[in-house]
């Protein structure tokens, strides 16, 4: 099982030896450069191409043992549970590959007037933000200052997900009614959608960060700006745009079985849809990472 997951993540046997890790990161960066160049040549790249110079610079920054903070705003802890479901690779990851420098659940560290928030490479922020909860707002503003990358961790953080249905009027804080995704308030660098985000994507994201593999993270950076997801996206952005092929991927990924495929087209039961955006994220006709897929398959 462990070997299988590792192979699947593209995670070579993790080595304590720091120089080997750096060597691997260098190799990855080289490969990535090549890929990028290749991509520049193919004009139909699915993402805005970035300058190679810039990315190699950033690679150096993140290639060390990344410092990661975990922030729990208005979320259900499902995403961090999902992180922990990486089972046997988790201890290796947490002990030797990253430093968890902040978080109430994973480590007993949080910020108050006496304890300043530490600097970190990546902030994993779970949950949306309640506009009537001052502490959340402060924490968010502060983490934006301290973190190089801010990741919307899970769909609530990315696009609100089911906190989009919140409307206040409940004990013990009837005024707590407005919940918005992170990107309404701060710049979000990358998003890891999913309700919850799968254990595999979390591991893959962290591994990509360790390896400085920004090419892998690029689609997550591209989707970070969009925070309006819902099952309707399939109708307006795929079916209405003559893109749907009836493949069924959207229905496969929907966590609430809100989607069925009827006469080859997705049909969304709005009463079940929790606005997680997974369907649109996964549809092969919304964006398509062809080069990465071929690389993963060895084709």
């Amino acid at each position: 099982m462990l070997a299988r997951i590792k192979r699947w993540l593209g995670l070579a046997k993790p080595d304590d030896d720091q120089s080997k890790l750096e060597e691997a990161a260098r190799k990855k960066a080289e490969e990535q450069k090549k890929l990028e160049e290749q991509k520049l040549q193919e004009s139909e790249s699915y993402k805005p191409t970035q300058k190679t110079e810039e990315s190699s610079q950033e690679v150096e920054n993140v290639a060390e043992k990344p410092r990661i903070g975990y922030f729990h705003l208005s979320g259900c802890t499902g995403d961090v549970m999902s992180l922990s479901e990486n089972y046997d690779i988790l201890s290796e990851l947490l002990t030797n590959m990253v430093d968890i420098v902040y978080g109430q659940t994973l480590v007993d560290v949080w910020w108050d007037d006496e304890n300043p928030m530490p600097e970190m490479d990546l902030a994993l922020v779970e949950g949306s933000v309640c506009l009537q909860d001052e502490h959340s707002l402060h924490e968010l503003k502060e983490l934006r200052k301290k973190a190089t990358y801010v990741a919307a961790f899970g769909s609530c953080a990315k696009n609100g997900c089911f906190t989009r249905f919140s409307r206040g009027g409940q004990q013990a804080q009837p005024k707590h009614e407005s919940f918005v995704p992170l990107s309404d308030l701060v710049k979000v660098d990358l998003a890891i959608p999913g309700c919850p985000a799968s254990p595999e994507i979390i591991a893959k994201t962290v591994v990509a960060l360790i390896n400085g593999d920004l090419d892998y993270l690029q689609p997550m950076m591209d989707v970070a700006a969009c925070n309006q997801n819902c099952g309707c996206d399939l109708q307006t952005n795929i079916v209405n745009k003559a893109l749907c092929t009836g493949c069924g991927t959207c229905a496969m990924v929907c966590p609430t079985r809100a989607l069925t495929i009827n006469e080859g087209r997705p049909e969304c039961n709005k009463a079940r849809c929790i606005k997680c955006g997974s369907c649109y994220t996964h549809c092969p006709r919304s964006w398509f990472p062809e080069a990465r897929i071929k690389q993963d398959l060895g084709l």
Binding site: P196, S198, T249, V253, P255, H282, R292
Partner: peptide, 22 residues
């Protein structure tokens, strides 16, 4: 082919497909 594209994308980027894609 289009179904393959859907499946392979979930394997490379398994955002919401916990323990399915592999």
């Amino acid at each position: 082919p289009c179904q393959l594209q859907g499946i392979r994308k979930t394997q490379s980027y398994p955002f919401a497909t916990r323990f399915v894609a592999d």
